[in-house]
Design a binder for these strands. Structure first.
Lengths: 145, 145
DNA sequence: GAATTAATTGCTATTCTATATCAAATGGTG
DNA sequence: CACCATTTGATATAGAATAGCAATTAATTC
């Protein structure tokens, strides 16, 4: 089923209003392949929703996370990024420029779940962050430079 | 070799001054077992260094990351956290309260490195973030509550 | 150990990210 | 279409981080 439709069902179930803003912001998040900040979403969506306020974007994105339609990303930056992919998957993070791209879970074999009985921590999922250098940041090998 | 001494050697090699601030801030970071923000470091260290400024704490922490004496943490929050552990290790992150604790690399078996030749991304390391609920956030089972 | 020079710090102002508050607007429901 | 709860937008504000520049400090040379 369509992600947007699924979200609308979720909202009805939870008694959340189906506002234009929520629909448009989720749609934008689903359409792009990256992991935008609230500000980036705001810039991308503001012309489609007259009078849209930044505050609403922040709030809607939080709502999306709450209902499980998106996730906050872990990234060594001082800005929250959002990821519409809520399935298990992993990331390639460039140490140089901070760019972040997805890696399907199938790209690696399953990770062994550690025993955390002693600490009382209940593990429900995991995500691997592979660090390194992306193609754009890597010094070119070509002799003609 | 002592981490602090090693850092001092690194500074000499790179032509960086061995300032009181750099030494004290690194020492504080090494002594505590958590993953503090710049602000937390500032609060902890300010009485030991008269007239210390926040700006310096931010700058020194960045320097520590640059020379490889610390790392910026990936955490789904809007604040940068610093980790003095630069060896491969993993994290338990509580979805509820955001608390983050270390997990030695030996706690899990090696993760298979995916083939990223097509994308041109060169992987140098990885870190697994296990998400779930920490003991403090998990609803108690005890009937007496 | 004093003088010189380059790096670093502290101060102030400022930018950027995010949240609080509350009246106005909108969505859901009968 | 009228009602009520929810959500939004505007404004103000908090909090995190950086920029610019003068004053200070560390390293170097004599």
């Amino acid at each position: 089923m369509n992600r947007l439709t699924h979200f609308e069902d979720l909202c009805r179930k939870k008694g959340l209003s189906l506002t234009v803003q929520r629909r448009v912001i989720l749609q934008e998040l689903l359409e792009r392949g990256d992991h935008p900040t609230a500000e980036e979403i705001y810039e991308a969506v503001r012309e489609r929703v007259p009078g849209l306020s930044r505050t609403t974007v922040y709030r809607v994105l939080d709502t999306l996370v709450q209902v499980g339609a998106a996730r906050k990303l872990s990234h060594p930056d001082a800005v929250v990024r959002f990821d519409p992919n809520v399935e298990r998957h992993h990331h390639l993070v460039c140490q140089q420029c901070g760019s972040l791209v997805d890696l399907e879970a199938s790209a690696i074999s399953n990770v062994s779940i550690p025993n955390t009985r002693k600490t009382g921590f209940t593990i429900t999922d995991y995500s691997v962050s592979f660090t390194g250098i992306c193609s754009r940041c890597r010094p070119r090998k070509s002799r003609k430079e």
